Simulated scan of single mutants.
Amino acid sequence: MKLIQRTLFSLAFSVTLFSQIGLVQAQSFSKLKPLQISQKFKPRVDNKPNPVTDGGATRGRSCLKKPESLIPLTPANIVGTTVSERPTFFLYVPDSTATTLEFNIFATGETENLYEGKLPMPKESGIISFTLPENAPPLKINQTYQWSISMICNNEDFSANPRISSWIERIEADSSLLKNLESSNSRNLAAIYGEAGIWNEGLNAIAKQRCIEPNNLLVRMKWRQFLESAGLNEMISKKLINSCSVNNR
């Protein structure tokens, strides 16, 4: 009888112990889950609305092979944000007969380009990235810039060349962001930047993850969430063309 009682007590203790361990593990996972899985971009309270210009609209269609457009990968209706003095820009390039891309950026209120350069045309449609090179002047903190990309199809009639433009503002990284970045690893960078409302570095971080783990379902889900939260649903399935192999610096 005593043997049966001891056995029952031992079983009860084991069940209680494993239940407590399971509860602790569940609580720990629930704390990690938002950072590991949630990958949304949350605009800052002080994000500026896009100035009244042609925005992301594409002009000219003379060399496009399909009814598609150049599309800047920037959050809808607000100015993109960066903490880098030479950030990375992303855009979707459709199939065309253009031979080159032309990049321009200038500060708000200025007429002279801060930097201009030519980029090679990708051999297929997809998302490309471009990082301001070291010889480009650095972006100034709290300054808004307009950047544009043109597909050079016609050297005589530039109005026939497809072109898009968008906006970016360099802001200063606050102490909270810097602290989070110091204690993070590459897998969590996009979540940290997204939570802080830093668009360009957040997109660049999740794009790098896709390059490293192209078949990882969790990474693909994070990519989807990040783009959806910025209104870029149509870009989710597009291929990354040069981001995994080209460094513009």
Results as ranks from 00 to 15, higher is better:
residue 34 P to G: 04
residue 35 L to G: 00
residue 35 L to R: 12
residue 36 Q to I: 08
residue 36 Q to G: 02
residue 36 Q to T: 02
residue 37 I to A: 04
residue 37 I to W: 06
residue 38 S to H: 07
residue 38 S to K: 10
residue 38 S to C: 01
residue 39 Q to S: 15
residue 41 F to Q: 02
residue 41 F to E: 04
residue 42 K to R: 09
residue 42 K to T: 14
residue 43 P to C: 04
residue 44 R to E: 06
residue 44 R to Q: 15
residue 44 R to C: 08
residue 46 D to G: 00
residue 46 D to L: 09
residue 46 D to T: 10
residue 48 K to L: 15
residue 48 K to M: 14
residue 48 K to R: 11
residue 48 K to G: 00
residue 49 P to I: 11
residue 50 N to C: 01
residue 51 P to G: 07
residue 51 P to I: 08
residue 51 P to R: 03
residue 51 P to Q: 08
residue 51 P to C: 08
residue 52 V to G: 00
residue 52 V to Y: 10
residue 53 T to S: 15
residue 53 T to R: 10
residue 54 D to G: 02
residue 56 G to W: 01
residue 56 G to N: 14
residue 57 A to E: 13
residue 58 T to D: 10
residue 59 R to T: 15
residue 59 R to M: 09
residue 59 R to V: 14
residue 59 R to K: 11
residue 60 G to F: 06
residue 61 R to C: 00
residue 62 S to D: 13
residue 62 S to R: 03
residue 62 S to I: 14
residue 63 C to L: 06
residue 63 C to I: 03
residue 63 C to T: 04
residue 64 L to F: 12
residue 65 K to E: 12
residue 65 K to W: 01
residue 66 K to H: 10
residue 66 K to P: 00
residue 67 P to I: 02
residue 71 I to S: 05
residue 71 I to V: 14
residue 71 I to W: 02
residue 71 I to T: 13
residue 72 P to F: 09
residue 72 P to V: 05
residue 72 P to I: 11
residue 72 P to W: 08
residue 73 L to W: 03
residue 73 L to V: 05
residue 74 T to N: 07
residue 74 T to Y: 03
residue 75 P to E: 05
residue 75 P to Y: 11
residue 76 A to Q: 13
residue 78 I to S: 04
residue 78 I to L: 12
residue 79 V to H: 06
residue 80 G to S: 15
residue 81 T to C: 06
residue 81 T to I: 14
residue 81 T to E: 10
residue 81 T to N: 08
residue 82 T to S: 15
residue 83 V to R: 03
residue 84 S to H: 07
residue 84 S to T: 05
residue 84 S to I: 01
residue 85 E to F: 07
residue 85 E to P: 01
residue 86 R to S: 13
residue 86 R to C: 11
residue 87 P to W: 11
residue 88 T to R: 13
residue 88 T to W: 00
residue 88 T to V: 13
residue 89 F to R: 02
residue 90 F to W: 13
residue 91 L to D: 05
residue 93 V to M: 09
residue 93 V to S: 06
residue 94 P to Q: 08
residue 94 P to K: 01
residue 94 P to M: 06
residue 95 D to F: 01
residue 95 D to M: 06
residue 95 D to G: 01
residue 95 D to C: 02
residue 97 T to N: 14
residue 98 A to R: 03
residue 98 A to W: 01
residue 99 T to G: 12
residue 100 T to M: 13
residue 100 T to W: 00
residue 100 T to D: 11
residue 100 T to S: 14
residue 102 E to I: 05
residue 102 E to Y: 12
residue 102 E to Q: 09
residue 103 F to C: 03
residue 103 F to E: 09
residue 104 N to G: 00
residue 105 I to N: 08
residue 105 I to T: 10
residue 105 I to W: 12
residue 105 I to Q: 12
residue 106 F to T: 07
